[in-house]
């Protein structure tokens, strides 16, 4: 388990650097396994405390169990929860039927942007992993976003020897990625090692189906699987070659590249 220790040490180091260097910091919590591991790592870094507020963007299309699970953990772990929602877009009837890209942009990207603008966060901690899909492999640990929330992946500042970008122009912000080096299997290995409570949607509950990646209900489909425990998920992942996000509609046709360039997490 040495490699899990290495991953944990690096993530903890990054979280502490972020906490020290940014005066207005938040952590995005999608309720999924990755950002929940990230939340756990925050408690590791700060010795049982969660001093950084957690932002959840509620598209209103999330699976109901996710919201219940969110509120329970927030209570049990004494979290500061900030829930963002693009109400105008929802009132105007935004829904996946209007087009997935449009819906994701309005409810997620815009919804996040609204919270960032309102709270003026200058550091946003996000649980993306570089093995998820191509564009995420190009992220730095500390990745600047300009005033329009754009990401210029062609001209990123250098990052070496765990010295990160902690200075930034007023009006811009930095995305911080402590999980960049983790893989999907590492996440599950760590959940097992630390006994982290994850949402039961990830497990097969007798129907031969489980979610491998969680998003909005209409745009996320469960995969065929009989994995009922963390161990069974790890075994399953070791033998699969199907991409993790194959159940996520937004990834098709370079969707993520366009979404992420505009500020999607």
């Amino acid at each position: 388990m040495k490699h899990l220790e290495e991953l944990e040490d690096k993530s903890v180091y990054i979280l502490r650097e972020a906490y020290k260097n940014f005066d207005n910091l938040c952590m995005l919590w999608s309720i999924g396994k990755d950002s929940t591991v990230l939340l756990w790592l925050m408690r590791k870094a700060f010795f049982g405390h969660a001093p950084i507020p957690l932002v959840h963007i509620d598209t209103s299309y999330k699976i109901k169990e996710m919201i219940e699970y969110r509120d329970r953990l927030a209570r049990d772990w004494d979290l500061t929860l900030v829930v963002g929602q693009n109400k105008e877009a929802l009132e105007a009837g935004m829904a996946p039927e209007r087009g997935r890209m449009e819906c994701c942009t309005a409810l997620k990207t815009r919804g996040l942007q609204q919270v960032l603008d309102e709270k003026r966060y200058n550091g946003v901690i996000v649980g993306v992993r570089s093995d998820e899909e191509g564009t995420r492999a190009k992220e730095r640990y500390f990745s600047p976003r300009d005033k329009n929330n754009d990401w210029d992946f062609r001209d990123q500042p250098p990052e070496l020897w765990d010295q990160f970008k902690t200075r930034f122009e007023p009006g811009t912000h930095v995305r911080i990625h402590p999980l960049l080096d983790w893989t999907e299997i590492n996440i599950w290995e760590y959940i097992k090692k630390e006994d982290i409570p994850v949402i039961p949607l990830y497990f097969d509950r007798g129907e031969g189906l489980r979610y491998r990646s969680l998003g909005c209900a209409p745009c996320t489909t469960p995969i065929r699987s009989t994995a009922k425990t963390v161990d069974e998920i790890i075994t399953e992942l070791r033998s699969t070659k199907v991409a993790e996000r194959s159940g996520r509609a937004q990834d098709a046709d370079r969707g993520m590249e366009k979404l992420r360039k505009d500020g999607y997490m």
Partner: peptide, 20 residues
Amino acid sequence: FDAFLEEQEQGITIDTARTF
């Protein structure tokens, strides 16, 4: 491995990508 269209057009790798 060229995740971005730009890279294919220029024929060079622009950024450090990590793969497993």
